[in-house]
Simulated scan of single mutants.
Amino acid sequence: MCGRFALTLPADVMARLFAAQPANDLPPVPRFNICPTELVHAVTSAQEIRRLGAMRWGFVPHWYKSSSDGPLLINARAETIAEKPAFAAAARARRCLIPADGFYEWTKDADSARLPWYIRRRDTEPMVMAGIWQDWGNDDARITTCAIVTAAASADIAAIHHRMPLILDPADWPLWLGEAGHGAATLMRPGPPDRLEAWRVDPAVNSNRAQGEGLRAPITP
Rank of each mutant, 00 (worst) to 15 (best):
I143T: 13
A153C: 12
L17A: 05
P192C: 10
A23Q: 07
C96Q: 05
L168Y: 10
F87C: 10
L97E: 10
D25M: 12
P10K: 10
I49E: 15
R4H: 04
E125N: 14
R189G: 06
H62A: 14
A152C: 09
G191H: 05
A76Y: 05
R56M: 14
I160W: 01
W117D: 10
I119E: 09
A147P: 00
W106Q: 11
P221N: 01
M127G: 02
C2F: 03
N206R: 11
P203A: 06
P193V: 11
M188R: 09
L7C: 02
C35A: 15
A113C: 05
A76N: 01
P22S: 13
A158P: 07
V60M: 11
I148C: 05
A19H: 12
L177K: 02
A147C: 00
R114G: 04
E38L: 01
R120V: 03
E105H: 04
D140T: 15
A155C: 05
A130E: 01
L115E: 13
W199K: 07
E197A: 14
D109F: 09
I148E: 02
N206S: 13
Y118G: 02
G53C: 12
M1D: 06
R50D: 04
M14N: 12
L175P: 04
Q47L: 14
S112D: 15
C96M: 04
S67R: 15
F59I: 01
G183L: 00
M164N: 04
A153V: 08
V29Q: 14
I81V: 15
P71Y: 07
I143P: 05
A90G: 13
P165S: 09
H182A: 15
R56D: 05
Y64E: 09
M164G: 00
W173E: 01
T124R: 14
D202M: 09
P28N: 03
G212N: 08
E83Y: 11
P30G: 03
P193D: 10
P174G: 02
R209D: 05
P27M: 09
S207H: 11
R189T: 15
A11H: 13
P165N: 12
G58R: 11
A130N: 01
I167A: 13
P165R: 09
R114S: 14
T44H: 07
F59E: 00
I81E: 08
A20Q: 04
E79A: 13
A113V: 07
A153Y: 09
L115D: 08
P30R: 01
A110F: 02
A153G: 13
F87E: 07
A46Y: 13
F32S: 12
E179L: 06
M164Q: 07
E83I: 10
P190V: 14
P27K: 11
I167S: 06
H62T: 14
A23L: 06
N138E: 14
D12K: 14
H162F: 03
I34R: 13
I98Y: 07
G191T: 04
T37P: 01
T124C: 07
K108H: 14
R120L: 02
T145A: 06
F18P: 08
A82F: 12
G58V: 08
F32R: 10
D139F: 07
R56A: 12
P221R: 06
E179K: 01
K65G: 15
R16I: 01
R16C: 04
A91K: 00
G131V: 00
I132G: 03
G58Y: 05
C2H: 11
P22E: 12
P126V: 13
S66P: 05
L177G: 00
D139P: 01
P192H: 11
T186R: 10
W57V: 04
A113R: 15
P203G: 08
